[in-house]
Amino acid sequence: MRAARTAYPLKWRIMDALEGVAAAIWPARFRRATPYLMLLPAVLLVGLLVLGLIQIADASLRTLDTTTFQFSDDYSIANFRRALTEPLFLVVAQRSLIAALIVTAVTLVFAFPYAYLMVRTRSPRLRKFLLIALFLPFFIGQVVRAYGWLIILGNQGMVNEALGVVGIAPMRLIYNYPAVLFGLVQYMLPFAVLMLAPALTAIPEELEAAAGSLGANWVRTFIHVVLPLARPGFIGAGVVVLTLSLTDFAVPAILGGGSQDFIANAIYDQFFRTSDQGLGATLALMLVALGSILVGLVFALFGAGTLAMGRSRA
Protein backbone atom coordinates (compact mmCIF):
# COMPACT_ATOMS: atom_id res chain seq x y z
CA MET A 1 0.00 0.00 0.00
CA ARG A 2 2.78 2.37 1.05
CA ALA A 3 4.81 1.54 -2.06
CA ALA A 4 1.76 2.12 -4.23
CA ARG A 5 1.29 5.56 -2.72
CA THR A 6 4.85 6.65 -3.47
CA ALA A 7 4.73 5.22 -6.97
CA TYR A 8 1.47 7.05 -7.69
CA PRO A 9 1.49 10.14 -5.49
CA LEU A 10 -1.61 11.95 -4.29
CA LYS A 11 -0.68 14.92 -6.50
CA TRP A 12 -1.21 12.73 -9.58
CA ARG A 13 -4.59 11.51 -8.32
CA ILE A 14 -5.73 15.10 -7.84
CA MET A 15 -4.52 15.92 -11.35
CA ASP A 16 -6.42 12.90 -12.70
CA ALA A 17 -9.57 14.17 -11.04
CA LEU A 18 -9.06 17.68 -12.41
CA GLU A 19 -8.44 16.27 -15.88
CA GLY A 20 -11.69 14.31 -15.56
CA VAL A 21 -13.59 17.47 -14.64
CA ALA A 22 -11.94 19.38 -17.46
CA ALA A 23 -12.85 16.63 -19.94
CA ALA A 24 -16.50 16.81 -18.83
CA ILE A 25 -16.69 20.57 -19.27
CA TRP A 26 -14.53 20.81 -22.36
CA PRO A 27 -14.82 17.60 -24.39
CA ALA A 28 -11.89 16.24 -26.33
CA ARG A 29 -13.27 17.29 -29.71
CA PHE A 30 -12.89 20.93 -28.67
CA ARG A 31 -9.24 20.30 -27.91
CA ARG A 32 -7.99 22.06 -30.99
CA ALA A 33 -9.56 25.27 -29.81
CA THR A 34 -7.86 25.08 -26.40
CA PRO A 35 -4.68 26.98 -27.32
CA TYR A 36 -6.73 29.81 -28.79
CA LEU A 37 -8.90 29.89 -25.69
CA MET A 38 -5.80 30.28 -23.57
CA LEU A 39 -4.65 33.19 -25.72
CA LEU A 40 -7.97 34.95 -25.23
CA PRO A 41 -7.13 37.02 -22.12
CA ALA A 42 -3.97 38.36 -23.75
CA VAL A 43 -5.83 39.15 -26.97
CA LEU A 44 -8.56 40.94 -24.99
CA LEU A 45 -5.98 43.00 -23.12
CA VAL A 46 -4.13 44.03 -26.26
CA GLY A 47 -7.47 44.68 -27.96
CA LEU A 48 -8.54 47.04 -25.18
CA LEU A 49 -5.22 48.82 -25.51
CA VAL A 50 -5.75 49.24 -29.24
CA LEU A 51 -9.29 50.56 -28.65
CA GLY A 52 -7.84 53.05 -26.18
CA LEU A 53 -5.24 54.12 -28.71
CA ILE A 54 -7.95 54.65 -31.33
CA GLN A 55 -9.86 56.77 -28.83
CA ILE A 56 -6.73 58.77 -28.09
CA ALA A 57 -5.99 59.19 -31.78
CA ASP A 58 -9.50 60.51 -32.26
CA ALA A 59 -9.12 62.95 -29.37
CA SER A 60 -5.74 64.14 -30.63
CA LEU A 61 -7.34 65.42 -33.82
CA ARG A 62 -9.90 67.60 -32.06
CA THR A 63 -8.94 71.07 -30.86
CA LEU A 64 -10.18 72.70 -27.68
CA ASP A 65 -12.10 75.93 -28.01
CA THR A 66 -10.74 77.86 -25.00
CA THR A 67 -13.78 80.17 -24.81
CA THR A 68 -16.49 77.50 -24.74
CA PHE A 69 -14.34 74.60 -23.46
CA GLN A 70 -15.86 72.45 -26.19
CA PHE A 71 -13.96 70.18 -28.53
CA SER A 72 -14.27 70.75 -32.23
CA ASP A 73 -16.41 68.34 -34.23
CA ASP A 74 -14.12 68.29 -37.22
CA TYR A 75 -10.58 66.93 -37.36
CA SER A 76 -7.46 69.07 -37.64
CA ILE A 77 -3.76 68.60 -36.99
CA ALA A 78 -3.55 71.78 -34.97
CA ASN A 79 -2.59 69.86 -31.80
CA PHE A 80 0.32 68.20 -33.56
CA ARG A 81 1.48 71.54 -34.91
CA ARG A 82 1.39 72.97 -31.38
CA ALA A 83 3.22 70.00 -29.90
CA LEU A 84 5.98 70.22 -32.48
CA THR A 85 6.41 73.99 -32.47
CA GLU A 86 5.82 75.18 -28.92
CA PRO A 87 9.25 75.40 -27.22
CA LEU A 88 7.93 74.06 -23.91
CA PHE A 89 7.06 70.67 -25.40
CA LEU A 90 10.34 70.41 -27.25
CA VAL A 91 12.25 71.15 -24.07
CA VAL A 92 10.25 68.51 -22.20
CA ALA A 93 10.73 65.95 -24.96
CA GLN A 94 14.44 66.63 -25.17
CA ARG A 95 14.81 66.48 -21.41
CA SER A 96 13.02 63.11 -21.20
CA LEU A 97 14.92 61.61 -24.11
CA ILE A 98 18.36 62.66 -22.90
CA ALA A 99 17.52 61.57 -19.37
CA ALA A 100 16.34 58.17 -20.65
CA LEU A 101 19.60 57.65 -22.56
CA ILE A 102 21.84 58.78 -19.69
CA VAL A 103 19.89 56.75 -17.14
CA THR A 104 20.07 53.66 -19.37
CA ALA A 105 23.82 53.93 -19.83
CA VAL A 106 24.56 54.63 -16.16
CA THR A 107 22.17 51.95 -14.92
CA LEU A 108 23.69 49.27 -17.18
CA VAL A 109 27.18 50.17 -16.00
CA PHE A 110 26.10 49.96 -12.35
CA ALA A 111 23.90 46.90 -12.78
CA PHE A 112 26.52 44.75 -14.47
CA PRO A 113 28.97 44.31 -11.59
CA TYR A 114 26.06 43.77 -9.21
CA ALA A 115 24.54 41.07 -11.41
CA TYR A 116 27.95 39.52 -12.06
CA LEU A 117 28.80 39.30 -8.37
CA MET A 118 25.34 37.91 -7.59
CA VAL A 119 25.68 35.20 -10.23
CA ARG A 120 29.32 34.28 -9.70
CA THR A 121 29.86 34.54 -5.95
CA ARG A 122 30.71 31.29 -4.19
CA SER A 123 29.12 32.46 -0.95
CA PRO A 124 25.41 31.61 -0.80
CA ARG A 125 24.99 34.19 1.98
CA LEU A 126 26.34 37.02 -0.13
CA ARG A 127 24.06 35.94 -3.00
CA LYS A 128 21.02 35.95 -0.72
CA PHE A 129 21.97 39.33 0.67
CA LEU A 130 22.34 40.81 -2.82
CA LEU A 131 18.99 39.35 -3.88
CA ILE A 132 17.16 40.74 -0.85
CA ALA A 133 18.80 44.14 -1.31
CA LEU A 134 17.59 44.00 -4.89
CA PHE A 135 13.97 43.22 -4.06
CA LEU A 136 13.62 45.50 -1.04
CA PRO A 137 12.97 48.63 -3.15
CA PHE A 138 10.12 46.79 -4.92
CA PHE A 139 8.35 46.35 -1.59
CA ILE A 140 8.73 50.02 -0.77
CA GLY A 141 7.26 51.41 -3.98
CA GLN A 142 8.32 54.25 -6.21
CA VAL A 143 6.51 57.18 -4.63
CA VAL A 144 7.54 56.39 -1.07
CA ARG A 145 11.09 55.95 -2.26
CA ALA A 146 11.12 59.31 -4.01
CA TYR A 147 9.80 60.95 -0.83
CA GLY A 148 12.57 59.17 1.04
CA TRP A 149 15.08 60.92 -1.14
CA LEU A 150 13.41 64.25 -0.38
CA ILE A 151 13.95 63.55 3.31
CA ILE A 152 17.56 62.60 2.78
CA LEU A 153 18.56 65.20 0.20
CA GLY A 154 16.22 68.10 1.07
CA ASN A 155 17.43 71.49 2.32
CA GLN A 156 16.91 70.34 5.91
CA GLY A 157 17.75 66.74 4.96
CA MET A 158 20.28 64.40 6.46
CA VAL A 159 22.97 65.10 3.90
CA ASN A 160 22.81 68.84 4.31
CA GLU A 161 22.81 68.50 8.08
CA ALA A 162 25.90 66.34 7.90
CA LEU A 163 27.53 68.93 5.65
CA GLY A 164 26.53 71.61 8.15
CA VAL A 165 28.36 69.75 10.90
CA VAL A 166 31.63 70.01 8.95
CA GLY A 167 30.88 73.66 8.17
CA ILE A 168 29.65 73.50 4.59
CA ALA A 169 26.66 75.64 3.74
CA PRO A 170 23.46 73.80 2.75
CA MET A 171 23.24 72.95 -0.94
CA ARG A 172 20.27 72.43 -3.20
CA LEU A 173 20.43 68.74 -3.88
CA ILE A 174 16.90 68.24 -5.17
CA TYR A 175 14.49 69.85 -7.62
CA ASN A 176 17.14 69.76 -10.35
CA TYR A 177 18.04 67.54 -13.31
CA PRO A 178 20.81 65.52 -11.63
CA ALA A 179 18.44 64.70 -8.77
CA VAL A 180 15.91 63.29 -11.24
CA LEU A 181 18.62 61.28 -13.01
CA PHE A 182 19.86 59.99 -9.69
CA GLY A 183 16.38 58.96 -8.62
CA LEU A 184 15.72 57.24 -11.93
CA VAL A 185 18.98 55.27 -11.86
CA GLN A 186 18.23 54.15 -8.34
CA TYR A 187 14.73 53.13 -9.41
CA MET A 188 15.88 51.27 -12.55
CA LEU A 189 18.82 49.40 -11.05
CA PRO A 190 16.83 46.36 -9.82
CA PHE A 191 15.09 45.98 -13.20
CA ALA A 192 18.41 46.04 -15.01
CA VAL A 193 20.02 43.56 -12.60
CA LEU A 194 17.06 41.19 -12.93
CA MET A 195 17.29 41.32 -16.73
CA LEU A 196 21.08 40.88 -16.75
CA ALA A 197 21.39 38.04 -14.23
CA PRO A 198 19.88 35.25 -16.36
CA ALA A 199 22.08 36.23 -19.31
CA LEU A 200 25.15 36.02 -17.08
CA THR A 201 24.04 32.72 -15.56
CA ALA A 202 23.92 31.33 -19.08
CA ILE A 203 27.66 32.00 -19.58
CA PRO A 204 29.59 28.93 -18.35
CA GLU A 205 32.23 29.90 -15.83
CA GLU A 206 34.61 27.55 -17.61
CA LEU A 207 34.68 29.94 -20.59
CA GLU A 208 36.25 32.58 -18.38
CA ALA A 209 38.80 30.10 -17.04
CA ALA A 210 39.53 29.05 -20.63
CA ALA A 211 40.09 32.66 -21.69
CA GLY A 212 42.51 32.98 -18.77
CA SER A 213 44.50 29.93 -19.74
CA LEU A 214 44.60 31.19 -23.33
CA GLY A 215 46.36 34.35 -22.19
CA ALA A 216 43.60 36.86 -21.47
CA ASN A 217 43.77 38.86 -18.25
CA TRP A 218 40.46 39.71 -16.59
CA VAL A 219 39.93 42.93 -18.50
CA ARG A 220 40.35 41.23 -21.87
CA THR A 221 38.32 38.24 -20.72
CA PHE A 222 35.57 40.70 -19.87
CA ILE A 223 35.78 42.56 -23.19
CA HIS A 224 36.17 39.56 -25.49
CA VAL A 225 34.15 36.86 -23.74
CA VAL A 226 31.79 38.05 -21.01
CA LEU A 227 30.54 41.23 -22.67
CA PRO A 228 29.68 39.71 -26.09
CA LEU A 229 28.01 36.72 -24.47
CA ALA A 230 26.06 38.95 -22.08
CA ARG A 231 24.82 41.11 -24.98
CA PRO A 232 21.29 39.68 -25.03
CA GLY A 233 21.00 40.60 -21.37
CA PHE A 234 22.27 44.12 -21.99
CA ILE A 235 19.79 44.63 -24.80
CA GLY A 236 16.87 43.33 -22.75
CA ALA A 237 17.85 45.39 -19.72
CA GLY A 238 18.58 48.43 -21.89
CA VAL A 239 15.19 48.38 -23.61
CA VAL A 240 13.32 47.97 -20.33
CA VAL A 241 15.23 50.75 -18.58
CA LEU A 242 15.02 53.05 -21.61
CA THR A 243 11.25 52.79 -21.99
CA LEU A 244 10.54 52.90 -18.27
CA SER A 245 12.63 56.03 -17.74
CA LEU A 246 11.37 57.74 -20.88
CA THR A 247 7.79 57.36 -19.68
CA ASP A 248 8.36 57.86 -15.96
CA PHE A 249 6.12 60.19 -14.04
CA ALA A 250 6.71 59.97 -10.29
CA VAL A 251 10.46 60.59 -10.10
CA PRO A 252 10.50 63.77 -12.24
CA ALA A 253 7.38 64.98 -10.44
CA ILE A 254 8.71 64.47 -6.91
CA LEU A 255 12.46 64.92 -7.25
CA GLY A 256 12.10 67.53 -9.99
CA GLY A 257 9.50 69.46 -8.03
CA GLY A 258 7.69 70.70 -11.13
CA SER A 259 10.81 72.21 -12.67
CA GLN A 260 11.98 69.02 -14.40
CA ASP A 261 8.86 67.72 -16.14
CA PHE A 262 9.09 64.71 -18.43
CA ILE A 263 6.66 63.93 -21.23
CA ALA A 264 4.41 61.98 -18.88
CA ASN A 265 4.16 64.98 -16.57
CA ALA A 266 3.27 67.25 -19.51
CA ILE A 267 0.56 64.81 -20.56
CA TYR A 268 -0.77 64.75 -17.01
CA ASP A 269 -0.90 68.55 -17.00
CA GLN A 270 -2.87 68.64 -20.24
CA PHE A 271 -5.40 66.10 -19.04
CA PHE A 272 -5.88 67.23 -15.45
CA ARG A 273 -4.74 70.86 -15.22
CA THR A 274 -5.57 72.63 -18.50
CA SER A 275 -8.11 69.97 -19.43
CA ASP A 276 -6.97 70.08 -23.04
CA GLN A 277 -7.51 66.40 -23.68
CA GLY A 278 -6.82 66.85 -27.36
CA LEU A 279 -3.30 68.13 -26.78
CA GLY A 280 -2.77 65.56 -24.01
CA ALA A 281 -3.76 62.79 -26.40
CA THR A 282 -1.41 64.19 -29.03
CA LEU A 283 1.51 64.18 -26.60
CA ALA A 284 0.64 60.65 -25.51
CA LEU A 285 0.64 59.46 -29.13
CA MET A 286 3.97 61.11 -29.75
CA LEU A 287 5.41 59.46 -26.65
CA VAL A 288 4.24 56.08 -27.93
CA ALA A 289 5.83 56.85 -31.30
CA LEU A 290 9.10 57.99 -29.73
CA GLY A 291 9.31 54.91 -27.53
CA SER A 292 8.55 52.60 -30.45
CA ILE A 293 11.15 54.26 -32.65
CA LEU A 294 13.79 53.97 -29.92
CA VAL A 295 13.05 50.31 -29.25
CA GLY A 296 12.90 49.61 -32.99
CA LEU A 297 16.27 51.30 -33.39
CA VAL A 298 17.81 49.19 -30.61
CA PHE A 299 16.42 46.00 -32.13
CA ALA A 300 17.62 46.97 -35.61
CA LEU A 301 21.11 47.80 -34.38
CA PHE A 302 21.68 45.07 -31.80
CA GLY A 303 18.98 42.42 -32.29
CA ALA A 304 16.24 41.64 -29.82
CA GLY A 305 18.50 40.11 -27.15
CA THR A 306 16.76 38.16 -24.42
CA LEU A 307 13.48 39.69 -25.61
CA ALA A 308 13.78 37.48 -28.73
CA MET A 309 13.13 34.56 -26.35
CA GLY A 310 16.06 32.55 -27.69
CA ARG A 311 14.68 32.31 -31.21
CA SER A 312 17.56 34.07 -32.91
CA ARG A 313 21.01 32.88 -31.90
CA ALA A 314 23.69 35.44 -31.23
Binding site: E206, A209, G212, S213, L214, L229, A314
Partner: peptide, 19 residues
Protein backbone atom coordinates in the same frame (compact mmCIF):
# COMPACT_ATOMS: atom_id res chain seq x y z
CA UNK B 1 48.30 33.59 -12.70
CA UNK B 2 46.96 31.26 -15.43
CA UNK B 3 47.21 33.83 -18.23
CA UNK B 4 50.94 34.25 -17.57
CA UNK B 5 51.67 30.51 -17.63
CA UNK B 6 52.40 29.07 -21.02
CA UNK B 7 49.77 26.36 -20.78
CA UNK B 8 47.24 25.18 -23.33
CA UNK B 9 44.26 23.49 -21.77
CA UNK B 10 41.47 21.44 -23.28
CA UNK B 11 38.57 21.45 -20.85
CA UNK B 12 36.25 18.59 -20.02
CA UNK B 13 33.35 20.49 -21.59
CA UNK B 14 35.67 22.07 -24.20
CA UNK B 15 34.79 25.68 -23.25
CA UNK B 16 34.84 26.89 -26.86
CA UNK B 17 33.58 30.45 -27.32
CA UNK B 18 30.11 30.14 -28.88
CA UNK B 19 30.10 33.71 -30.23
Amino acid sequence: PPHKRSIGMVFQRLALFPH
